[in-house]
């Protein structure tokens, strides 16, 4: 058992290193650790010549406006005036894909609380050397981790992002007030079928280094708008179980709301 895992691991690493060599026409050894943005020395995607780091910075906004908690109010596309008291979510299974299509799952489970003025970041350590043309992750957790709750770290159920009456994690919580009627809205999105998969194409970035940072914009306005208009006057304002029909709109919008703005 141990052996076969080791062999599998070895062969994956081998494959990744190989595919990079194939894809890279330039001599990468000249473009070492500087987080260069000149691009000319790198192939499409992000390149690590040796084991490297990637920090994902999650920066929320509401459209072009800065993200603030209540009492700041925003107007959604459906002309609902909302205030936000909490935006918290799980980011898990961050996976990098090489130009040759090999996937490497970095296995993280992170709980992100968006609080203005506080950095919300996921640090990915020990990324194997290679050139990567896309990065994907789940907003939520995979069904295996979602099945027991017997976990420590970010998955400790004591963080309150957990349903004990219907086993599983709350993947994303957005709540606040919907001021036109001063009613509470509260979205707890969970349930294996509702994982929100985010995928970022990196092929337009031609950069590399040993420690890179990807700035990811989380546009809360899009939660209510892109592509599905979400109207608090007619759609659900209380979502606390997996099968609420309005989740179908929200989960697509939410996955769309995560976009990379820069990689340095």
């Amino acid at each position: 058992m141990k052996k076969s895992i080791l062999i599998l691991l070895c062969s994956t690493v081998l494959l990744i290193v190989q595919s990079c060599k194939e894809g890279d026409k330039d001599d990468n050894t000249t473009a070492t650790s500087s987080a260069s943005t000149t691009g000319s020395t790198f192939e499409s995607g992000i390149t690590y010549n040796s084991k490297g780091k990637l920090t994902l910075m999650f920066n929320p906004t509401f459209g072009a406006q800065a993200f603030e908690l209540s009492p700041k109010s925003y107007v959604t596309a459906a002309a609902d005036t909302i205030r936000i008291t909490q935006l918290t979510y799980y980011v898990s299974n961050v996976t990098l894909t090489t130009s040759a299509g090999n996937k490497i799952n970095l296995g993280n489970y992170e709980l992100i609380s968006q609080i203005p003025g506080q950095q919300a970041k996921v640090l990915l350590d020990s990324i194997p050397a290679g050139c990567y043309t896309s990065i994907s992750y789940m907003i939520g957790v995979d069904s295996l981790a979602n099945s027991t709750g017997v976990h420590t770290g970010a998955l400790d159920p004591s963080y309150g992002m957990y349903w004990a009456w219907s086993t599983g994690y709350v993947f994303l919580r957005l709540k606040g007030r919907f001021t036109s009627q001063n009613t509470a809205y509260s979205f707890d999105i969970g349930g294996d079928g509702n994982v929100m998969n985010v995928n970022h194409d990196l092929s337009n970035y031609k950069t590399g280094g040993t420690a890179l940072t990807a700035n990811i914009n989380v546009d809360v306005a899009k939660f209510f708008n892109t592509p599905n208009k979400y109207d608090l006057k007619t759609d659900a304002i209380d979502i606390h179980s997996a099968g609420v029909p309005s989740i179908a709109k929200l989960k697509v919008n939410i996955a769309n709301a995560f976009n990379i703005t820069a990689i340095q």
């Binding site: 099945s147 027991t148 709750g149 017997v150 159920p157 004990a164 009456w165 219907s166 086993t167 599983g168």
Partner: peptide, 20 residues
Amino acid sequence: FFWDGGAKNLESQVLGPITN
């Protein structure tokens, strides 16, 4: 577990009554 089958296993069921 539970009358409605909401809990997938005994470990996670434990959290139900404590936090309910």
